[in-house]
């Protein structure tokens, strides 16, 4: 039985060596002495691929059974038995490991691994590929719209994919008439679904706040008529935020996203006003007041880290020290030519930062002053079903972006790319080929994702990032993948630590 070792993120840039298995099949390993981590794919008895991922982090030996979602924390002997389990019988494994552990311990560990396998919690086979084929052919409804309420901005952030809010086009504010037609389109295309999400996005939405208020009022009126429930959200850079807007948002917005990058020097360098002054001092007191007024829930302070602040864990902790409890600080996605872009050689430092952040979060949680970090939030016990996990975010089918002119795109990241123009809010989706392309976008449509241990937690990654780096929505953005895997490892480790 052949065993093919895959590389964990931390190993991906080490030079691997090759060994031969007993039956002379090529076995691709990495030097464990440097990292103490491994991820492997074993070929099951019926030829189907079963996948287990095991790694060490912060003193924990963690084993993830990919296809069942079971997570096990194991001792050293079990950690060493698992990779041998499908290759050798009990006696052979005892003989192989007897120099390092007591025979009785090895035999016990073997029996426990066998019990996990019998219980469907280890070496579970991947039987989902045929299943997802039928799922992707289901009829879908539109569940959410991202309204580009303002293609204009009062900041000049260096990394903005919207180019100061213009999205490769001209400055424009969405009119009430276009917004109203968008809500009508959503209601008409949502089938029997009751809960509908509308994100007020930009640019800077508060530059068109009267239309935001008018559209919320229209939505509240229409939801009674059509038995719908609108869940509105708002993203803002905080420049125009005031008490009246906070009061309105606390009444009407299910979630607000407040853009801030972290430490003052980091934030002001990347998020200046057009004339160069920083925005940190203006927005921080307002954001603190806003977060408190929402009871420290149903919001995120959301930042971006770049090549210029690879020590981003300090920015996360700075935001926590400012009193924020819902925090997301995310890697910039930028062309490789951008000076602030994350590069392959930055990855080891970023892994270290995620590890440091995870350890500090555990410490603070135990001290009763914990906070949430968006990319470490993982639900091991609940979470969505397999169908959702494999079919991705819903862009292009269930989620669409609307420009100030009423044009439809698969998501906010595709706005301005005419290849992805889908139609408009008056005539609906005219380019159904794009919708079908996105409907078929799932984990099994992506070669890189099929055997990845993270597939049930990332759903194949971001279609826009894939397109921007590979010209194909059915690929994957490699640096994003590497960081996602690391974050999942850290998130599971935090669960293990807090379960003690």
């Amino acid at each position: 039985m052949g065993v093919q070792y895959l590389l964990t993120p931390a190993q991906r840039f080490l030079v691997p060596f090759f060994a031969e298995t007993a039956n002379n099949e090529k076995c691709h390993k990495t030097d464990r002495s440097q990292q103490g981590e491994r991820s492997f794919v074993c070929y099951g008895k019926r030829g189907t691929v079963t996948v287990v991922h095991q790694y060490k982090n912060n003193g924990y030996n963690i084993v993830l059974d990919i296809n069942s979602g079971a997570v096990h924390v194991v001792d050293d002997v079990t950690y060493d038995v698992i990779p041998l389990y499908q290759e050798k019988n009990k006696e052979e494994i005892v003989a192989e490991l007897s120099g390092r552990y007591e025979d009785k311990e090895i035999a016990e560990a073997y029996d426990e691994v066998a019990a996990l396998e019998a219980g469907g919690e280890l070496f579970t086979e991947d039987e989902y590929e045929a299943y997802i084929d039928s799922f992707k052919n289901r009829p879908t409804v539109v569940k959410a719209l991202c309204l580009h309420i303002a293609h204009d901005c009062n900041l000049a952030c260096r990394y903005c994919f919207a180019e100061e809010g213009e999205y490769h086009g001209r400055r424009e504010l969405m009119s009430y008439e276009v917004g109203k037609a968008a809500l009508d389109f959503l209601i008409a295309n949502s089938g029997n679904r009751r809960n509908l999400e509308v994100d007020f996005f930009g640019g800077e939405p508060l530059m068109n706040f009267q239309v935001v208020k008018d559209l919320v009022a229209y939505g509240r009126q229409q939801e009674k008529i059509h038995n719908k429930n609108f869940r509105f959200t708002l993203t803002t850079n905080g420049v125009l935020l005031n008490d009246d807007i906070m009061e309105f948002a606390n009444r009407e917005m299910a979630n607000v996203v407040l853009s801030i990058d972290g430490r003052k020097e980091v934030h002001d360098f990347m998020r200046p006003f057009p004339k160069g002054a920083g925005s940190y001092d203006l927005i921080v007191p307002k954001f603190q007041k806003f977060a408190e007024s929402r009871g420290q829930t149903n919001y995120y302070v959301r930042g971006t880290f770049t090549h210029y602040n690879l020590d981003f864990s300090r920015d996360v902790l700075h935001l926590a020290d400012l009193g924020f409890q819902q925090i997301s600080v995310e890697p910039v996605v930028a062309p490789e030519t951008a000076d602030y872009a994350i590069r392959k050689e930055d990855l080891p430092k970023l892994y270290e930062e995620y590890d440091k952040l995870a350890v500090e979060m555990i410490r603070r949680e135990r001290e009763g002053r914990g906070f949430h970090f968006f990319h470490f939030m993982i639900d091991l016990e609940g979470g969505p079903c397999v169908a959702k996990r494999l079919s991705g975010c819903g862009s292009g089918t269930e989620y669409l972006a609307v420009t100030p002119w009423g044009d439809l795109y698969p998501c906010h990241q595709f706005v301005g790319n005419e290849k992805f123009y889908m139609g408009n809010v008056y005539e609906g989706v005219k380019n159904t080929a794009i919708r079908e392309q996105f409907r078929g976008c799932n984990v099994y449509a992506k070669e890189k994702c099929k055997s990845c241990f993270a597939k049930f937690y990332c759903s194949g990654g971001c279609a826009a990032n894939s397109y921007n780096f590979h010209g194909d929505i059915n690929n994957a953005y490699d640096i994003g993948c590497a960081l996602q895997k690391k974050r999942i490892e850290c998130a599971i480790m935090i669960k293990a630590a807090l379960a003690e």
């Binding site: 296809n67 069942s68 979602g69 079971a70 997570v71 096990h72 924390v73 194991v74 001792d75 002997v77 079990t78 311990e105 016990e108 560990a109 426990e112 691994v113 019990a115 996990l116 919690e121 569940k143 959410a144 999400e197 939030m377 993982i378 639900d379 091991l380 016990e381 609940g382 979470g383 969505p384 079903c385 397999v386 959702k388 996990r389 991705g392 975010c393 819903g394 862009s395 269930e398 989620y399 049930f456 937690y457 990332c458 759903s459 971001c462 999942i488 998130a491 599971i492 669960k495 293990a496 379960a499």
Partner: peptide
């Protein structure tokens, strides 16, 4: 078990619940 402790198969998935 003595050697194993088991801990536990629109979006923009890992933390989402049907609820």
């Amino acid at each position: 078990m003595k050697h194993v402790k088991t801990l536990n198969l629109t979006s923009c998935v890992g933390n989402q619940s049907c609820e």
